[in-house]
Amino acid sequence: MDKTLSSLEDAVASISDGDVVMIGGFGGSGAPIEMIHALIDRFEATGSPKDLTVINNNAGNGKIGIAAMIDKGMVAKMVCSFPRSSDPRAFTDRYLAGEIDLELVPQGTLAERIRAGGSGIPAFFTPSSYGTELAEGKQIQEFDGKPYVMERWLKADVALVKGHLGDKFGNLTYRMAARNFNPLMCMAADRTISQVSQIVPLGGIEPEAVVTPGIFVDSVVEVPNPRQEEEMVRNGEAYA
């Protein structure tokens, strides 16, 4: 068994028009920026994939990453908790023009929906959003005298995540707060593709230190010294 891929091009080759794509990260930390840009390269060359539903905590920043996907017209819908950033123009313009859909989900509910999707739990009840406009139309049930909102699982065709170390079985670690949504998304997609800063030999990650066991990961591609979205936005970089 060898889940490693030799190129980013291979990593994003199987994503289709209309797919639901989970993309890891919280702001720039843990965002698989190089893999996103490889997906944009493919779209520029072939016109595909388009009409994507993208699930991420945010909705892009500046002119790179998810914001660049939106600028290119690849994204039909965002599912996120916080579609704002230091430079949210890409999403804001399209949203206000009615050119992109938004499903706004409280952050903890978003995480739990993804975990549920990866865990075979089709729905669950949470106190979050009870009594607010985000609970409108949702089933409410009382447990022990308190009202809760029913939320459905979230699944995806593909998850694009960013790990720190990976091995050929797909075991992953993460770097500091770049963990965030990444381990959850690994569980919730039909195909999970992780970029990692370094591929190590089997055993190079101590079993005790594995954060995402390889069963949740289909492909691993090495991207040494990954760029940080935050720095790219501050530099005013654009992925055109």
Partner: peptide
């Protein structure tokens, strides 16, 4: 920039800190 808070500002760690995923 892998070490930020919910406001996306850079932070530092105190001794005894820990990391965990979103759920």
């Amino acid at each position: 920039w892998d070490l930020i808070n919910a406001g996306k500002k850079a932070i530092t760690l105190e001794p005894g800190a820990s990391f965990f995923h979103h759920t």
